[in-house]
Amino acid sequence: MQDALDSVRQFHAAMNAPISPHPTLLTCDRNTAVTCAKRVNALATEAMAAASEDDVLLRRASMALEELAEWLTAHVHGDLAAAADAWADRTYVLFGDAVVAGLPAAMLFGEVHRSNMTKEPDPMGTGKAVKGSKYRPPDIRKALTSNPENYPTQ
């Protein structure tokens, strides 16, 4: 996991996106974040209620949305420990999605990272990446069909 975090840190540095050297809460408009958390949580509840017993996709989507709502709520309440817990739970659910779907997570991440590093910083200074003239899209099909031993993760 450290390699993936280092890759994302490298990308953030290249895009002039925020990087914190220590655990911190993210700045937010609390009123908007509260509204978003409530809407995301309602969607999580709706997805779970709509999911049949064998609907793995909607059940997993509901879990992901619930953890996202917890992430937002923790920031609104200024609770760093709860935010860290919600982040870890979100990560666990995403890894679980890869396990359930049989996805080669490391290979997919490596391919997306390779592609992301061909993007450019937004000239508006938002910290968001944009697809410029050097952009090369990820080859997801290659990542899905490659032998793990022969595929670079960086």
Rank of each mutant, 00 (worst) to 15 (best):
M15G: 12
I19E: 10
I19N: 01
E46G: 04
A61F: 06
D54M: 13
P148W: 01
K38C: 07
D85P: 02
N16D: 13
A50G: 11
Q10N: 13
D3A: 10
V76I: 07
M63Q: 12
L103F: 05
L80Q: 03
P137F: 03
G132Q: 09
A83H: 03
A83R: 02
R136W: 12
N16E: 14
K128T: 09
V76T: 09
L144C: 00
G127H: 05
S20V: 06
T73S: 15
H113L: 15
Y92H: 10
L108I: 15
P148C: 00
L72Y: 05
A51M: 06
A47F: 08
K131P: 07
N116P: 06
L57P: 01
D97E: 15
A44C: 09
T32C: 09
N147E: 15
Y92V: 07
A105I: 03
T91K: 13
R141C: 05
M1H: 11
T24K: 12
T73P: 05
S146L: 00
K131S: 12
H12F: 12
G78E: 04
A84Y: 00
L72M: 12
A42G: 06
M63E: 14
A88W: 11
T145C: 01
H77W: 12
I140V: 13
S7R: 02
A61W: 08
P138T: 07
E67Y: 01
W71Y: 12
G132I: 08
I140T: 08
S146Q: 01
D122E: 02
A74G: 00
R60G: 08
D54K: 04
S133G: 15
V56D: 09
L72G: 01
G127V: 02
C28K: 10
K142Y: 01
A86I: 07
F11K: 04
N116Y: 05
R141K: 14
L68H: 02
F109Q: 03
R90K: 10
D139C: 00
A50F: 09
L5F: 14
A105P: 01
A17F: 11
A106K: 00
G125N: 09
E120M: 11
V93T: 11
N116G: 05
T118L: 05
L5N: 14
A98M: 05
V56H: 12
S146V: 03
T153P: 09
L25D: 07
L68T: 02
D122R: 02
D3W: 15
F109I: 04
T153W: 09
